[in-house]
Write a protein that binds this DNA or RNA. Structure first.
Lengths: 217, 217
DNA sequence: GTCTATAGGTGGATAGAC
DNA sequence: GTCTATCCACCTATAGAC
């Protein structure tokens, strides 16, 4: 608890408000009020509204990447690592509910106004590790070939990411509470998503009569 | 080309700008300029900026739902219908590149500021049809049981939706042009996504003494 | 239907006291 | 470090001529 300093109070309040209302609809004065400090103080810690926003994004994205890449680099079968990745992704998003909303807002911008380059770069890092995992799994015979590893990686990430992004719609489908499905439901979905991906990538049993004569591409 | 009327010119310009920059960052004057009319004229056709935005959303969402539900209601095997749905989803998003950006922005809002209820409702309509399709497929023995149909529907929609939403990140993964992957790549991905879902839902061969292996198309 | 001109309000940012 | 007070730019929306 030890007295969070004003800078942290401001970052916390800004994170919440930016996630809820977006950058433009959030005013400096609102952030100051929510943080319990005077709005002029924001300019003591941050050069302007834009840099405050960047600082918020940086803090959040750092957490995400640290947690998910750690799982990907762990040892184990490709299947186990893939499952761990999907579940880690869900845990990070459960723990930081503001993250998906903010990232999605950034992704929706076509011009690189704010921190898109940063997100692109980091997304690429985490993403590429996942691509490699799929590729390695294919070479090791754990995943079926004939699936583009990049496409597979997109499919895998998409399942969980979309679940959080489309929360208002998901809520309707699952008859969940106003603020979205409870963590146990989210975890159940994450397990489903991992299973869905593993089933999609599973090596098909070679038919009893014509196993090896057919060779696909 | 028969002289698009001012109202349509305004809607077109507004759609593009809202999608590119978001609601708040787009000014009435910019829209007027882009439409080639005076900004005061917007208030002749629309009560205020908010209602203009709603009109833009309505036009777009209408197209999306019309196209995708039509595919779901078509006849055929569950597998064929699912595939048609996924590819139709991709086609609509290719044809209306502004749609995913706008919808995503709406979904990111936590308070129902603009047209979230509408999107929720329509998403639920389209979504529920997909749930039903999966459920029917399971009962007919075409899809494996033990997968929650609602979860499966989310996984299916997520793959294509996320592809468009996360365009800036996808671009990096696929080494695509600045304005995203070309339509042929998108279609290839859509086929992958359909295949990924069908493989994930395929009925596993029952045990070693089972009927001969199934080959999906 | 379309324009000019402008009122009215809000928000980001700064100056400077304490 | 934190606050009060305020400036200035900009944007929505309206009044009213043509």
């Amino acid at each position: 608890m030890a007295t969070p300093d004003s800078r942290t109070l401001i970052l916390d309040a800004a994170e919440r408000l930016f996630a809820e209302r977006g950058f433009a609809r959030t005013t400096i004065k609102e952030i100051g009020r929510a943080a319990g400090v005077n709005s002029a103080l924001l300019y003591y810690y941050f050069a302007d509204k834009d840099r405050l926003y960047r600082a918020v994004l940086q803090r959040l994205v750092g957490r995400l990447v640290a947690r998910t890449t750690r799982r990907l680099e762990a040892t184990g079968t490709p299947q186990a690592r893939l499952q761990a990745f999907v579940e880690a992704q869900a845990e990070v998003l459960i723990a930081n509910p503001n993250l998906p909303r903010l990232i999605v807002r950034e992704l929706a911008e076509s011009d690189a106004v704010h921190a898109v380059e940063q997100i692109q770069h980091i997304a690429a890092t985490s993403f590429r590790l996942l691509c490699d995992l799929v590729r390695e799994g294919q070479q090791a015979g754990a995943f079926r070939k004939g699936v583009d590893p990049r496409f597979a990686a997109i499919s895998i990430v998409a399942q969980v990411a979309y679940f959080f992004v489309a929360r208002p719609a998901i809520r309707v489908i699952l008859d969940a509470a106003p603020d979205g499905p409870a963590p146990p439901v989210v975890r159940a979905y994450a397990r489903h998503a991992a299973g869905f991906a593993l089933a999609a990538l599973a090596v098909p049993p070679t038919g009893p009569s014509a196993p090896r004569s057919r060779r696909k591409t």
